[in-house]
Simulated assay, not measured.
Amino acid sequence: MRTCLVVDDSSVVRKIARRILEGMDFQIVEAEDGAKALEACKQAMPEAVLLDWNMPVMDGYEFLGHLRRMPGGDAPKVVFCTTENGIDHISRAIHAGANEYIMKPFDKDIIAAKFQEVGLVPLPEPTVA
């Protein structure tokens, strides 16, 4: 089973993301800040990371820089999930190694679409009429 690391300082956001991603057949690991997320990655590198930007201890941007420099840290697909919607934030995230970017609040359809775009979830089969 594929693993997704959900990194957010809000337990409510982590719970919602967990429910959505478990429905997409992901095993979930949670971290409430970037430092704890790095420790989780050292234990077992996930296939996906759903990453908040603004967190205490270590923010998502700093975590992403550390992740991408770790052995195997180039492999996970990273989707930033944040309230930061300025083009400068999006550009910084992509240049730092994020694969995609979604805005809070999110729902199942938004996460599914972004995970499909980065190749984590297969595209739905076309229906034939």
Rank of each mutant, 00 (worst) to 15 (best):
M1Q: 08
M1V: 08
R2W: 09
T3R: 07
T3L: 02
C4H: 14
L5E: 08
L5T: 12
V7P: 05
V7Q: 15
S10V: 00
V12I: 02
K15T: 05
I16Q: 15
I16N: 14
R18Q: 10
R19N: 09
R19A: 09
L21C: 14
L21E: 14
E22A: 06
E22I: 09
G23M: 06
G23Y: 13
M24R: 08
M24I: 02
D25G: 15
D25P: 12
F26I: 12
I28W: 15
A31F: 10
A31Y: 05
E32W: 06
E32K: 07
D33S: 03
A35K: 13
K36G: 01
A37E: 02
A37F: 10
E39R: 07
A40D: 05
A40T: 04
C41A: 08
C41I: 06
C41G: 08
K42T: 02
K42W: 03
A44I: 00
A44S: 01
A44M: 02
E47N: 11
A48V: 13
A48P: 11
A48R: 15
V49K: 12
V49Y: 13
L51E: 14
D52Y: 14
D52A: 04
D52P: 09
W53P: 13
P56K: 11
P56I: 00
V57R: 09
M58K: 14
M58C: 15
D59K: 15
G60F: 13
Y61T: 09
Y61H: 15
E62R: 13
E62V: 10
F63D: 06
F63M: 09
F63Q: 12
G65F: 13
G65N: 11
H66C: 10
L67S: 07
L67E: 12
L67T: 05
R68M: 04
R69M: 04
R69G: 02
M70C: 10
P71Y: 12
P71T: 08
G73I: 02
D74Q: 06
A75I: 03
P76T: 02
P76M: 06
K77W: 12
V78K: 10
V78M: 13
V78I: 07
F80W: 15
T83D: 07
T83Y: 12
E84G: 07
E84C: 11
E84R: 11
I87F: 05
I87M: 01
D88E: 01
I90S: 01
S91P: 03
S91L: 04
R92G: 05
H95V: 09
H95E: 11
G97H: 11
A98L: 08
N99R: 13
E100L: 09
E100H: 15
Y101S: 00
M103S: 07
P105M: 01
F106D: 00
F106E: 00
F106P: 01
K108L: 01
I110F: 00
A112W: 03
A113F: 06
A113W: 03
Q116P: 00
Q116H: 03
Q116G: 01
V118H: 07
V118C: 03
G119T: 00
L120V: 04
L120E: 10
L120D: 09
P122F: 12
L123E: 01
L123D: 01
L123W: 02
P124F: 03
P124L: 03
P124S: 05
E125A: 11
E125K: 12
P126N: 05
V128S: 09
V128D: 05
A129H: 12
A129R: 15
